[in-house]
């Protein structure tokens, strides 16, 4: 829900006349933050094997950005890894991006 509100407030703040759309920046930062968070979890084995089995976005231990990652996120939004839900991790990393570092 925090994600939704944050995104919505950011989205609502923009106007059509902007030539450089902040929403695109927001999405781009969110994309990069998500990949970094999940790579961090994968590297530190913070995600149970079962959650990753057969996932096409994970190739030789590297997280491959794409629609498949969004689909996986969608069914793990409320999954708790390292004490917080995945959505919370993503929101927090996005908020400070690009200064986020893997805490594990």
């Amino acid at each position: 829900m925090v994600f939704a509100l944050g995104a919505a407030l950011l989205l609502a703040g923009c106007t059509r006349t902007d030539t450089h759309r902040p929403v695109d920046d927001e999405a781009r930062r969110r994309d990069q933050a998500l990949v970094a968070v999940i790579q961090c979890f994968v590297d530190n084995r913070a995600i149970p094997e079962g959650d990753l089995r057969g996932q096409p976005w994970l190739v030789d231990g590297r997280v491959r950005a794409g629609a498949e990652l969004v689909e996986w996120l969608s069914v793990h939004r409320d999954t708790v890894y390292g004490g917080r839900t995945l959505q919370t991790w993503e929101n927090e990393a996005t908020a400070v991006w690009p200064r986020w570092t893997c805490p594990l």
Partner: peptide
């Protein structure tokens, strides 16, 4: 059975629509 949060996802869509509406 997964950890999906459909209410939260709907909220994101509401936000996007509201932004277009403001424009």
């Amino acid at each position: 059975p997964s950890d999906a949060d459909y209410v939260s996802e709907m909220a994101g869509l509401y936000g996007l629509v509201q932004r277009l509406h403001n424009d």
